[in-house]
C-alpha cells in the first residue's frame, strides 16, 4: 500500500463503489432521485462523460503502444557474436560487383598495401632481399600481367591530367583486383613448388 499507484488505485475503487451504491440507491428509490437536482440539460451529462472517457482513453493509448520491453541489451545465445573475417576492408574494395569510386586517400592506401604485399611475397617465394624484390617490382618482371605490374610499379601516380585521373578512378578497382590475383598466383606457384 505504500506505493502511490496502489493508493490512487484504492481511492479510485472506493470512489467507484460509493458512486455505484449511490447511483443504485437513486435508481432503486425514486424519491431520492427526485430530490437530486441536476442543474443542466441531460445531454450535457452524456457529452461530459463521453469527453472524459475519451480523454482517459487517449491518455492510456500511448501506454499500450509503448509497452515496456522485457528485452535486455543482450545478444541472442544461438549464434557466436559476429566478428568480421580478416581482410573485410579489402574485400569491400576487391570483391564489389558494381563500379566503385574510392577517394584518393583510400586508393593510395589500397595500392600501398598491395605493393607491400607483393614485395613480401616476392621475398618469401624467391628468398631474395627486399631490395631485389623492389627491383622486380620496378621492372615488372614478377608477373605476366602487365596491368598488375603497372599497378604496383613505383612511379608517379598521375601527371595531373583530368582524363588520366578519371581513368585511374574508374579502373582502380579492376586493376587492384588483377594485382591481387597476380600476387596470389605468385604465392600459389611457390606453394606448388
Amino acid at each position: 500500500m505504500s506505493n502511490p499507484r496502489s493508493i490512487i488505485r484504492w481511492i479510485s475503487a472506493a470512489g467507484g463503489i460509493l458512486s455505484l451504491c449511490a447511483g443504485l440507491a437513486v435508481l432503486v428509490a425514486p424519491p431520492i432521485g427526485g430530490a437530486l437536482h441536476w442543474p443542466w440539460d441531460d445531454e450535457i451529462l452524456l457529452v461530459a462523460f463521453f469527453v472524459v472517457v475519451f480523454v482517459i482513453a487517449g491518455l492510456l493509448l500511448p501506454f499500450v503502444l509503448l509497452d515496456d520491453s522485457d528485452r535486455a541489451d543482450r545478444t541472442p545465445p544461438e549464434p557466436i557474436p559476429s566478428t568480421p573475417p580478416p581482410g573485410r576492408g579489402l574485400e569491400h574494395v576487391l570483391d564489389r560487383r558494381w563500379l566503385l569510386s574510392l577517394p584518393p586517400a583510400r586508393r593510395h592506401r589500397v595500392r600501398g598495401g598491395l605493393r607491400r604485399t607483393t614485395i613480401r611475397t616476392i621475398v618469401r617465394t624467391e628468398g631474395c632481399a627486399t631490395e631485389t624484390a623492389r627491383d622486380h617490382l620496378a621492372d615488372g618482371t614478377w608477373t605476366d600481367d602487365p596491368v598488375a605490374a603497372a599497378f604496383v610499379r613505383p612511379e608517379p601516380e598521375s601527371d595531373g591530367s583530368l582524363l588520366r585521373s578519371l581513368r585511374e578512378r574508374l579502373y582502380f578497382t579492376r586493376r587492384a583486383r588483377r594485382t591481387a590475383r597476380a600476387v596470389l598466383m605468385l604465392a600459389a606457384e611457390d606453394a606448388r613448388r
Binding site: 581482410g87 574485400e91 570483391d95 583486383r177
Partner: peptide, 10 residues
C-alpha cells in the same frame, strides 16, 4: 573472397 585471400597471404 579475393580480399580475405589477400589477408591470408599477408
Amino acid at each position: 573472397s579475393l580480399g580475405t585471400a589477400v589477408a591470408g597471404l599477408r
